[in-house]
């Protein structure tokens, strides 16, 4: 198994409903994989499962050769997988800086003792957390730094919240980044910019990325490989061109010709 992430025979049922069925999926180190599929296809469940928020009914998730099944979400993050949320979920009343600082929690270790006695190790760690937070925020240009650092996340515009979510995920220092509809709700200019940034996330920061996206332009521009889910099953895999011309995929999005509909 040389894949970074390897998913085998994954099933999940919610009270009889198959949210995911016999899913096989893998990600190579350094790859960008796009996951597409119509609404309700199980894409977000798929992310929830990898990040440990939902436990699969059967099957295995291997990350760097070790299983993730049964781990709590924070342990998954500790192993090196970070995610964003489809419906942006920031810590709205914490400042922008704090949002990015808190997500370095699992990469740092000073506890009560250090902070009470203000030890040298504690001060150095705090300084490093802050430095790294600013570095991550600086990746998005001038938008999230400067006077913004001390502002609560709730005052940000929608697009900036999405950027902050990505920054927060980056700050956990992951190897694999799961982006859930990163450009949803953005205007074309912002979308184009973020598409470029996703590319840079791999080239400059070395992240492997899986993204769920409905905007096919983005998927085409960034993905090395595309996977299409429908009704919890993989219906096509391959390059964007292959998948987008696949008849099953077209059918999943547009529906079947009349006579064969179930």
């Amino acid at each position: 198994m040389s894949h970074l992430l390897d998913i085998e025979e994954l099933n999940i049922t919610f009270g009889g409903l198959h949210a995911l069925r016999d899913l096989d999926f893998h990600v190579e180190e350094g790859e960008i994989v796009g996951v597409i599929g119509p609404n309700g296809a199980g894409k977000t469940t798929f992310f929830n499962m990898i990040s440990g928020m939902v436990r699969p009914t059967s099957g295995d998730i291997l990350f760097e050769g070790e299983t993730l099944v049964g781990l709590d979400p924070n342990q998954v993050t500790q192993r090196g997988i970070a995610r964003t949320f489809q419906n942006v979920r920031l810590f709205a009343n914490m400042t922008i800086l704090e949002n990015v600082m808190v997500s370095q929690h699992c990469r740092t270790k000073r506890g009560v003792f250090g902070s009470l006695f203000n030890t040298r190790a504690f001060r150095e760690e705090e300084a490093e957390i802050r430095r790294y937070a600013e570095e991550v925020l600086g990746f998005f240009g001038s938008r999230l730094v400067g006077y913004r650092l001390e502002q609560p996340a709730s005052v940000l515009s929608y697009a900036n919240r999405r950027r902050l979510e990505i920054a927060r995920a980056m700050a956990t220092r992951p190897r694999l980044l799961l982006l859930d509809e990163p450009v949803a709700g953005m205007n074309p200019i912002e979308t184009a910019e973020l598409t470029r940034l996703i590319g840079r996330l791999r080239s400059e920061w070395g992240f492997t990325i899986v993204l769920i996206e409905h905007d096919m332009n983005v998927v085409r521009d960034v993905s090395d490989r595309v996977v299409c889910l429908d009704h919890g099953e993989t219906i096509a895999q391959g390059s964007f061109e292959e998948v987008s011309s696949n008849s099953d995929v077209i059918e999943a999005y547009l529906g079947r010709p009349l006579e064969s509909k179930k």
């Binding site: 928020m53 049964g70 781990l71 342990q75």
Partner: peptide, 14 residues
Amino acid sequence: MTTAMRGSGAGRTN
């Protein structure tokens, strides 16, 4: 719901 599902397996904590 999710909390109820945890608690055994690889992620067992103290």
